[in-house]
Each structure stands twice: as C-alpha cells, then as structure tokens.
C-alpha cells in the first residue's frame, strides 16, 4: 500500500489533489496523510507550502506585505528525485 502512493505520483500525468489521490487509491484520506508523512520522514517525498513567502520575504522590504499566500499557501507533496528498486513488491 505504501508503495502505491509513490507509484501513483510517478505515473501521474499532471498535478493531482489529495482528495483525488485518496479516491484513486481507495485509501481513507486520514490513512493517506499518515502514509505521506511516513514517506516524508523517509526522505522519499517532499512536503512544502506553495507560497513560502514568509521567511524568505524578510529581505524584500516594503513589498513583503504584498505577497499573495502570505498566510500560507496550499501544501504540495512531490517526489524526491531518486532512483531505487522496491525489493518487496
């Protein structure tokens, strides 16, 4: 099941929403969150906030306040580039 999450991302032909992935894999959203968190801890997935203006924008002076997604953008989860095989599939 855990590998299905990675495979779904590897074979996706464009961005997918978390809900869409949950329906596609027939995995409860809560369980999917846990699986994603596991792969993030393992370093196979990267999770981040889309806008990411906060810390970096400390340098941008008066423009800092004009940042859209200032309060935090949508979370994105992407594969970390790496090639490896799955021995236990």
């Amino acid at each position: 099941m855990l590998h299905q999450v990675l495979e779904a991302l590897e074979t996706a032909t464009g961005p997918v929403s978390l809900d869409e992935l949950s329906r596609q894999l027939k995995i409860e959203p809560g369980a999917l969150e846990g699986m994603i968190a596991f792969w993030v801890r393992k370093g196979r997935l990267r999770s981040g906030v889309g806008g990411a203006c906060g810390g970096a924008c400390a340098h941008c002076g008066p423009q800092a306040g004009t940042c859209v997604f200032n309060a935090g953008g949508p979370r994105t989860i992407a594969l970390v580039e790496r090639t490896r095989s799955y021995p236990d599939r």
Binding site: V49, G50, A56, T66, F69, P74
Partner: peptide
C-alpha cells in the same frame, strides 16, 4: 504556477517562492 500566482502580488516574494 504557485510562485507565479504570488507574482500577481509582487515579483520579489514570488522569486523567493521558487524555493518550493
């Protein structure tokens, strides 16, 4: 496109948002 959406507000944070 996430940094680009930020660019509608200001290019500076949008450039920093490419870190994602």
């Amino acid at each position: 496109f996430l940094p680009m959406i930020v660019g509608f507000g200001c290019s500076v944070p949008a450039i920093y948002a490419t870190r994602t």
